[in-house]
């Protein structure tokens, strides 16, 4: 079975993100990057599916040349191939354009099963996975926390706001991964040494313009400073007063 896992390069969780001068996106100068957390789960689940049911895993990303570092890490963990659709503006693409570009490459790979994170930890859209499934006319199961495959049939548990929902589906399918699905492995030494010289091809693609135009990006408003109402037992009355009359929470 051909399996594709899609990953996205996002600013690290510790990065001090700044809005660009034109207020249309991020100022990427000096930003540090990492693979989006949920995409790590996606690659891990792809590798586990291969280990259980056979096949091979391709890690696919729309991103810059530097993404080879991320792809190589997943090859060391057990993925079979990596493809970078070279794009220095990947972070500025809307979900539809991203999905269309990835979709074309997924079809070319002849994949039957595609894994993505439930969302990328940059814009938190969570839209690319369902869009790919729609464009391909495949089944789509989102927010998956447990997955079973049996031939061309699958069963998944998905996390919803009401509780855990168990669904059945038929392959081909797109699965988006939620925390709890698996614990991503570490690459071991053999994996690292096996991929050190492996070439990760960069490919071009047919461009897809954004439909969504970002008008303005603003940082969240600065939080108001807190207030210390007093110290010790003497402050209790003032605190209760503030909580009741100002904050209205008690």
């Amino acid at each position: 079975m051909k399996i594709v896992a899609c990953i996205k390069r996002v600013p690290t969780t510790e990065a001090q993100v700044k809005v660009s001068a034109d207020q249309k996106g991020l100022d990427t100068a000096g930003l540090s990057w990492m693979t989006s957390f949920y995409d790590e789960l996606a690659v891990e689940e792809a590798i586990r599916s291969k280990e259980k049911h056979g096949g091979d895993v391709t890690v696919l990303t729309l991103g810059p040349s530097e993404a080879s570092k991320d792809v190589r890490e997943f090859l060391a963990r057990g993925a079979d191939a990596g493809v970078i659709l070279k794009d220095d503006q990947w972070h500025a693409r809307d979900a539809r354009a991203t999905a269309k570009i990835l979709c074309a490459r997924i079809q070319k790979a002849g994949a039957e099963l595609v894994f993505l994170g439930k969302l990328a930890t940059d814009r938190d859209n969570g839209a690319v996975g369902p869009m790919i499934a729609t464009m391909l006319g495949w089944a789509c199961v989102t927010d998956v926390v447990a997955l079973e495959l049996n031939g061309t049939q699958g069963s998944a548990k998905r996390e919803t706001e009401q509780g855990i929902e168990t669904v059945a589906f038929a392959l081909p399918a797109v699965i988006t991964c939620q925390k709890g699905l698996n614990e991503p492995r570490r690459a071991n030494l053999k994996g690292i040494m096996a991929v050190k010289a492996k070439a990760i091809p960069e490919e071009s693609f047919e461009d897809v313009p954004n439909q969504q135009q970002v008008q303005k990006v603003e940082p969240p408003p600065a939080r108001k400073a807190g207030r210390i109402v007093g110290e010790g037992a003497a402050a209790v009355q003032a605190l209760v007063d503030a909580l009741r009359n100002e904050a209205g929470v008690i």
Binding site: R72, E73, A76, A187, L189, I192, M193, K196
Partner: peptide, 8 residues
């Protein structure tokens, strides 16, 4: 460092 040394 070589790529694999960085990965290690």
């Amino acid at each position: 460092l070589m790529e694999e040394q960085r990965m290690v």
